[in-house]
């Protein structure tokens, strides 16, 4: 089983983000593999361990994307493909075109990706890639099993409901929290990763013209800003009963938060 895993480098969720001059500041904040992609990678590595085959990690971006791919190699992936591109110059449409092109140059039976990237939060790229490849997909997968006759049985999360789907290969799966507990790269893995192949690709090599009709971005960012801070709140004093009574008064009164309810 040859598995592709999409890997995006993101700013860690506990780092702060600052906006200046209408753009997000490019800082030295700690970066990690997008947590959802990490679940996908972990699942792919477990499949490789059970069924054999290879795990190829694919990322579109610049040096930081390469670092994330190196981490993935250290976790146990066999090979990495870096699509070198300035992430600020592409949107989800263009990114998906690049990744789909990279995947279609090889033979993969399955691809894993994340339910969404925690920085962009769009949840588009992986599903777009599936459509561009003509593959079925299952999104927000929380459990997955491969049957002897080569079918995928997945359990997916759908706003609290859980759905069991059966789908044919090749397929794209996006990982949701709860799928597994990703491993840490072991020291030996980090050493080995240095000798594993990381191939650099460019849009030209992939035959994707980012300025052309087909693949050029469909959306543009007009600007960014920091959300307004919430005004300082008020602490309520007294006994639990007094606090509860005051809270109810405030919610019914100035906050207008219990209008027509109770």
């Amino acid at each position: 089983m040859n598995i592709a895993v999409l890997i995006k480098s993101v700013v860690a969720t506990d780092e702060s983000v600052t906006v200046s001059g209408g753009e997000i500041e490019d800082t030295e904040a700690k970066r990690v593999i997008n947590p959802y992609d990490e679940y996908g990678l972990e699942e792919a590595l477990r499949w490789k361990e059970s069924f054999g085959g290879t795990v190829t990690v694919i990322g579109a971006g610049a040096d930081r994307a390469a670092e994330a791919l190196r981490t993935a190699l250290a976790m146990g992936a066999d090979e990495a493909l870096l699509i070198r591109v300035d992430e600020r110059s592409v949107d989800e449409h263009a990114t998906a075109k690049l990744i789909a092109s990279a995947i279609s140059q090889r033979r993969f039976e399955v691809a894993w990706a994340g339910h969404m990237s925690v920085d962009n939060g769009a949840g588009q790229v992986a599903i777009r890639v599936a459509e561009l490849l003509g593959w079925p997909h299952a999104g927000a997968v929380v459990a997955c099993e491969l049957t002897d006759d080569g079918k995928l049985l997945v359990t997916r999360d759908a706003e609290g409901d859980s759905e069991d789907w059966e789908l044919t290969l090749p397929a794209m799966l996006t990982a949701q929290q709860g799928l597994n507990e990703p491993r840490y790269p072991a020291l030996a893995g980090i050493m080995k990763a240095k000798r594993k192949p990381l191939t650099e690709l460019t849009p030209e090599l992939l035959g994707v013209d980012l300025a052309g009709e087909e693949a050029s971005p469909r959306t543009e960012r007009l600007g960014c800003e920091t959300p307004p801070a919430r005004p300082a709140g008020r602490k309520l004093a007294g006994t639990a009963k007094e606090q509860a009574a005051e809270l109810l008064g405030l919610l019914r009164g100035e906050a207008q938060a219990l209008k027509g309810r109770g």
Binding site: V17, V19, I24, V118, N120, G121, L222, C224, T226
Partner: peptide, 9 residues
């Protein structure tokens, strides 16, 4: 963006 730490248009 970034789970609400920034907004984009």
């Amino acid at each position: 963006l970034h789970a609400g730490k920034a907004l984009e248009r």
